[in-house]
């Protein structure tokens, strides 16, 4: 690839990455990733942008970031960020967020809440994954707990501050238990309702989905996973897709980032005036997890 110019990440028509607060509008954003092209570099950029309004992916801000030796103070963060993870613990996220403008997140950080739905998922919360009777109640309880913790954490939040909620891999609940997509989507709506903007990060394995299937059983894992993903795209305002190059592995390009309008993108445009500007970036991630964006 010849000297391709480094690009800045911009999603909406006003150039921003995360939309501003709008009391009449709560957005649902879907982030999909595949094996080989993990989402961590993108999700941490979104978190950084939510908290600090900066973006380490962009060429200019990374220089100012490195000039700061001490960790960034989250007292005056631009949003309250909640990360709910079904696949990783806080140690994973605080290590990765350190690369983003030296963000220092701990259990006691202001404006940042981590809800661990991973470590004790099956030892405490979902003790009966196979039971159809208990699963809905257990999932209900799990999410009620999550919601309660979020509400408590933002009790002192000023009204003008956005609440950004990022949920990592909740589709795993559908795969690992007898939970159905509709039941999980209920919980997604509930989370979207309490947040300003909800980001759902989920894996998309092209071999394990089938849109034209006619499943013989409601418990068929391919059917359930596809059901969830398709319905999510219909109700999303924005879809960010991280996927490998069609040609496979390359030394100078890790993968492709696609910015796609979701099924309800028109709703966002009509209510907030913000439009998703569709585009495709190429990106490169180095061994430390730092990423750069390019155009084709």
């Amino acid at each position: 690839m010849s000297a391709s110019q480094r690009q800045d990440l911009a999603i909406y028509s006003n150039g921003c990455i995360i939309p501003p607060l709008n009391p009449a509008f709560k957005s649902l954003n879907l982030v999909t990733y595949q094996q080989g092209t993990h989402h961590t570099w993108l999700t941490q950029a979104l978190l950084e942008n939510a908290l600090l309004d900066t973006c380490s992916l962009n060429s200019d801000s990374s220089q100012t970031a490195r000039s700061l030796n001490n960790s960034r103070n989250l007292e005056d963060a631009k949003a309250h960020v909640v990360v709910v993870s079904f696949m990783n613990d806080l140690a994973h996220w605080s290590k990765n967020l350190k690369k983003c403008n030296n963000l220092d997140v701990t259990p006691s950080s202001p404006n940042f809440t981590f809800l661990d739905c991973f470590t004790n998922l099956f030892s405490k919360f979902i003790t009966a994954p196979t039971s159809a009777q208990s699963i809905e109640a257990q999932v209900q309880e799990l999410f009620a707990d999550v919601t309660q913790k979020i509400v408590t954490a933002v009790r002192a939040k000023p009204a003008h501050q956005r609440l950004i909620v990022v949920v990592e891999n909740l589709e795993f609940l559908i795969a690992a238990t007898c939970l159905r997509a509709n039941q999980l989507l209920c919980q997604v709506s509930a989370l979207q309702n309490i947040a300003s903007h909800l980001y759902v990060v989920t894996q998309l394995a092209p071999e394990a989905i089938d849109v034209s299937t006619v499943a013989s059983s409601a418990h068929n894992p391919v059917y359930k996973a596809t059901d969830f993903l398709v319905k999510m795209i219909y109700r999303a305002h924005l879809v960010l897709q991280v996927q490998p190059l069609a040609t496979g592995r390359a030394d100078d390009v890790t993968g492709v980032l696609r910015i796609v309008r979701g099924g309800l993108s028109e709703e966002m445009r009509l209510v907030t005036g913000l439009n998703v500007v569709e585009k495709e970036y190429l990106y490169l991630v180095n061994k430390d997890g730092n990423a750069k964006l390019f155009f084709r």
Partner: peptide, 12 residues
């Protein structure tokens, strides 16, 4: 079918 909608094509 592959959930990879074309972009900048006037969809949605």
């Amino acid at each position: 079918e592959n959930l990879r909608l074309p972009i900048k094509a006037g969809l949605n």
